[in-house]
Design a protein around this nucleic acid. Structure first.
Length: 674
RNA sequence: GCGCCCGUAGCUCAGCUGGAUAGAGCGAUUGCCUCCGGAGCAAUAGGUCGGGAGUUCGAAUCUCUCCGGGCGCACCA
């Protein structure tokens, strides 16, 4: 509603500007006034015109107001301050429209998008940082789907990299296990109900330390590491099989962990298939043919295939389509030492090279495809994994029009390299729809680190936060955090609802725990580092998920006691002349709620345009705040005036509708009771 | 050396394409359950928006510069 009226207002204003001044502004700013008493829209356009027309802004504003005349849906326009034009909606009519229109207003393109998120190395348990990644990614997927896009969700699995190699080294050289020994170990862990990813968490830290532990052995151990890595890449040996066993088991655990937060995937592309299906060879041909790569014959990169780096573009810009190719820097003499190595002098491909091939595949530009095999069952969908050959009835992924890579900000450079390569190949359309959905890391506060029993140096204690490290085994495991949250919510629920059966209480506790965790990860904007602390994460009061869920629970309670339904309440308000109840000081708390509810579509659009889910999280919270405020001031069920009572019930209904809608896009459920 | 991010209330953070008295949560102080669930509501205190300069009718927001903090700039993945 809000968005539609805004567009109507904008069109009308443009017509007026054309008629009056023959002006066609590129973008017309329409703001939301700071206070509700100023109306619903504010237009600072007169200030802009003042300069061009060399006249007082207030005069211009007055002229515009009289030219605007009356617009359907609007109660009127007025000049305020030094030259603002404030627009007021016809509250009664707007209310009716909001009550009646439950569908979504959306103007964004209906693209086929691909979102990659999670992508944890399958060699250890997921930690809080991975949770931020997965929650951001999953939420964004929900936003795109809400806007009508077809979205594939991918979780990239680096199952042949050094991190998996480190675990294999740990198993073979620290634990002295053979392939059968590893199989026995896995069976033992499974029987004991122990989480293999937790086992690997410790082993990975030990292995990482082992490399450095003995200076005299350092070189030899580094060689073991490298040999193991190569063996895994090669395949067809024990190391590779151990790597496959462990990484697959850990991957399964990651999927289980994420499923606890209602996070699902469609496809798990693995590096092993990128290698064995020769994705790189195809990419290499293209890159050479288009001159994106060239063979360096001199300097430090002699014997490598390299790519020149971008000219001033940042991988951080969401869509730098506006950046047209500037002229090439003058070809100076000698080798470009700053070029990015893609193929090493020994003929092997770097990570960026493989990533270029993978991203060509994502856009359907590679000319090769993965094989597909079933891997994991969700209640309502299947998750597929890459394979060298396909099962019957397999789906097909890739060929997306737009892609989003949820990857932390430290990888901005390699991401920019891939975009650069796409552009170099002439795929500028695809490059423009390539978004590095970047976010800052989750670190621990020194206090949190101490609580967990880690040693914290004097220097670190003085810092605002300490980076987690898988190599050191330093961090908060995702499952531990979820367990802790559930324990805390369980206790609350048990106290509040001792009469309910245990299964129901457990269900409610889980929903609240998930709500708390997801909201916690979403309320910070992407480029803010989260300094993690149990105190904040385990909070259920104030700006938290449970606060919002509680608002919904209250609305449910109203309809239960009032023996009606939200749908009925919304239907009943049709035809009621609510205007008298929507004006005046006391009515602002009612109108505020309707207005906010009308803005959900606007927020969705903003979130997608800026790739920032935090805005919707905030919106949901503000909606809950508006409702709590309204709830206190207006006693619905005892209202004596029948017309007003209908309005109040409808207000609760629309609040519930928009709260549930917003929460579901955040991946948070709204329990019946809590 | 080059690039990116951050610096706003005691703490943690919002502040959208420049706009009306700079907001929220937590913490502090103080009120509010004969009334739809207090995981709540209301009020008070608390800010040279890191410093400086510039652009502008107007700057927390844009530009430059300096200070402080973080992260990238491998023939590692």
């Amino acid at each position: 509603m809000y968005l539609r009226e805004q567009k109507k207002l904008e069109e009308r204003l443009r017509a007026v500007l054309r008629n009056l001044y023959q002006i066609e502004p590129e973008n017309l700013v329409i703001e939301q006034p700071p206070e509700i008493k100023f109306g619903e829209y504010a237009l600072p356009v007169a200030f802009e015109l003042a300069r061009k027309l060399r006249r007082a802004p207030r005069k211009i504003a007055e002229e515009l107001v009289s030219a605007l005349g009356s617009v359907e849906g609007f109660a009127g326009f007025e000049v305020a301050g030094a030259g603002y034009i404030n627009a007021r909606l016809d509250r009664g009519a707007a209310m009716q429209e909001i009550a009646a229109s439950s569908e979504l207003e959306t103007s964004s393109e209906h693209l086929h998008s691909l979102v990659e998120h999670t992508s944890i190395n399958p060699n250890k348990a997921a930690h809080v940082g991975h949770l931020r990644n997965a929650i951001l990614g999953d939420t964004f997927v929900r936003l795109l789907r809400a806007a009508g896009q077809k979205v594939d969700v991918q979780n990239y699995i680096d199952n042949t990299g050094v991190q998996v190699a480190d675990i294999v080294v740990g198993l073979m050289h620290l634990e002295g296990l053979s392939l059968s020994g590893v199989q026995a170990l896995m069976a033992r862990l499974s029987d004991a109900g122990e989480r293999i990813d937790f086992y690997c968490w410790d082993l990975y830290a030990r292995a990482s330390q082992w490399y450095e532990a003995d200076p005299s052995q350092k070189e030899a151990r580094k060689k073991i590491r490298l040999d193991t890595l190569h063996a895994i890449e090669q395949g067809g040996n024990d190391a590779a099989q151990i790597g496959e066993l462990i990484s697959t088991a850990v991957l399964r655990r990651h999927l289980e962990t994420m499923l606890r937060l209602d996070i699902e995937y469609d496809f798990l592309p693995r590096e092993s298939e990128i290698l064995r299906l020769h994705f790189w060879e195809s990419a290499f041909e293209q890159l050479k043919a288009k001159g994106v790569l060239y063979f360096e014959t001199d300097g430090k990169n002699k014997g490598c295939w390299v790519m020149k780096r971008g000219t001033g573009r940042t991988g951080n810009a969401l869509r730098d389509e506006a950046v047209d190719d500037l002229e090439e820097p003058a070809a100076s003499d000698g080798p470009d030492e700053d070029a990015k190595v893609i193929v090493r002098s020994n003929g092997t491909v770097t990570y960026v090279g493989k990533d270029i091939a993978y991203h060509l595949w994502k856009f359907g530009l590679l000319g090769r495809d993965f094989g597909y095999r079933r891997f994991f069952e969700y209640p309502d969908r299947e998750c597929w994994i890459s394979a060298e050959s396909s099962e019957d009835d397999h789906p097909h992924f890739g060929e997306a029009q737009a892609i989003y890579n949820v990857i932390d900000s430290r990888q901005a450079d390699p991401q920019a390299n891939v975009i650069e390569a796409l552009r170099g190949l002439g795929y500028s359309e695809q490059a423009a729809h390539y978004t590095h959905f970047s976010y800052e890391m989750v670190a621990l506060t020194p206090r949190c680190a101490l609580e967990l029993g880690y040693e914290v140096s004097e220097e670190d204690q003085g810092r605002p936060y300490i980076e987690v490290s898988g190599r050191k085994g330093f961090g908060v495991k995702a499952d531990d955090l979820i367990d802790k949250l559930i324990a805390a919510t369980q206790q609350e629920v048990d106290e509040r609802h001792p009469e309910r059966d245990a299964g129901k209480r457990e269900q409610i506790a889980k929903e609240i725990a998930v709500g708390a965790l997801r909201y916690f990860m979403l309320k910070y904007t992407r480029n803010s580092v989260i300094a993690f602390d149990f105190k904040d994460a385990l909070s259920f009061e104030g700006e938290t998920g449970p606060y919002i869920q509680y608002a919904v629970v209250r609305t449910r309670s109203i309809f239960r006691k009032g023996e009606t339904t939200p749908e009925q309440a919304l239907a009943d308000v049709a035809g009621v002349d609510a205007a008298p109840y929507l004006a005046g000081e006391d009515a602002d708390s009612i109108w505020q709620l309707w207005l906010r509810a009308a803005k959900t579509s606007l927020l969705l659009e903003q979130c997608i345009a800026t790739a920032e889910p935090a805005y919707l999280a905030r919106h949901a919270f503000q909606l809950a705040q508006d409702f709590s405020n309204f709830y206190r001031r207006h006693h619905i069920l005892t209202e004596g005036d029948p017309a007003k009572k209908k309005l109040l019930l409808a207000t609760a209904a629309v609040a519930q509708r928009e709260l549930i809608r917003s929460l579901s896009r955040l991946g948070i459920s709204a329990p019946e009771v809590m």
